[in-house]
Design a protein around this nucleic acid. Structure first.
Ligand SMILES: [Mn+2]
Ligand SMILES: [Mn+2]
Ligand SMILES: [Zn+2]
Ligand SMILES: [Zn+2]
Lengths: 148, 148
DNA sequence: ATGAAAGTGAGATTGATTCTCACTTTGGGA
DNA sequence: TCCCAAAGTGAGAATCAATCTCACTTTCAT
């Protein structure tokens, strides 16, 4: 645990995959990485403008779309009618657990296994895609809530 | 298979659980039961008004809320930014497969098993609730699509 | 360096859903 | 059967996250 260095942030523009490097998008990506857990567009906008004033809300939405297209930002749920977003750089197929206490997002292995696929197939159905969101408590909040 | 009679429809107002029996809500419940598979609010409104003109869209939305509160109507996904709804009278915990071809909704047993719960617990997390939507082809559409 | 394409900010717009409000209907008691 | 408070209704206004418009600026391949 001495020389192992945890990589904490990707090169900002990497979140967009392809596209031009504008100062605004760089700031937005940086702010998105700094967010702790899931966030909504408005929160990201507030975070960015608190550091780099003048960036418009529409620009944040455009950056969000770009990151979603690049696959580095995903919708992990919804809160008060707003899309809940989170950065996701994990490459394999998985889903997300959103902590209802602190908003932290945790990657979860896909629970759709052969059993489910086979059960559907038994009835004649074919599952081509799915969408899963888990809610609960992250390790930290669970420990904090633990009494006795 | 001679004396077994399939129950095709519930008493209309039963979908609301508690509440007053207005002609509008009865018509809306009837229309909801007649819908084949998933539908959005606007489609339900069109269906009702085609039989019982004059019923307002707001009334349909209120009926939808009432049925959702009663647990007989659930949101099974989303289509073009509109909530996808479907009647669900199955009592046990399950999820839904929405046919991307015809909109049919099929009940699916919950795939969140001990394995998933344990995997999350191993990391210290606690899963308290979840939301799952499956997309694919219903038996009929799958058979129809099948070539050779 | 040049310019066509991509990005931006401010404000207008969209559109599903909810709310307001005056009016009507319902149904449990009296 | 009658009364009336509560619940429901219709039309239109309001909400509000998200998208679009447009004139202007920035980026970057050539
Ligand atoms: Mn992830
Ligand atoms: Mn169901
Ligand atoms: Zn937490
Ligand atoms: Zn189908």
């Amino acid at each position: 645990m001495s020389s192992r260095r945890t990589i904490r942030s990707t090169e900002p523009m990497a979140l967009y995959g392809r596209g031009r490097v504008s100062a605004q998008r760089a700031a937005i990506a940086k702010a998105a990485e700094a967010m702790s857990g899931a966030f909504v567009a408005e929160e990201l906008h507030r975070a960015v403008t608190s550091v780099e004033p003048g960036i418009g809300l529409a620009t944040v939405y455009r950056a969000i779309s770009a990151m979603q297209s690049a696959g580095t930002l995903v919708t992990v749920g919804e809160r008060d009618g707003c899309a809940l977003l989170a950065i996701c750089v994990r490459g394999d197929h998985h889903h997300h657990l959103v902590c209802t206490e602190c908003g932290a997002v945790v990657g979860i292995d896909c629970p759709i296994d052969e059993t489910t696929m086979r059960a559907a197939a038994r009835e004649g159905h074919l599952v081509t895609s799915h969408q899963i969101v888990l809610y609960g408590l992250c390790a930290r909040c669970r420990a904090r809530t633990e009494n006795t």
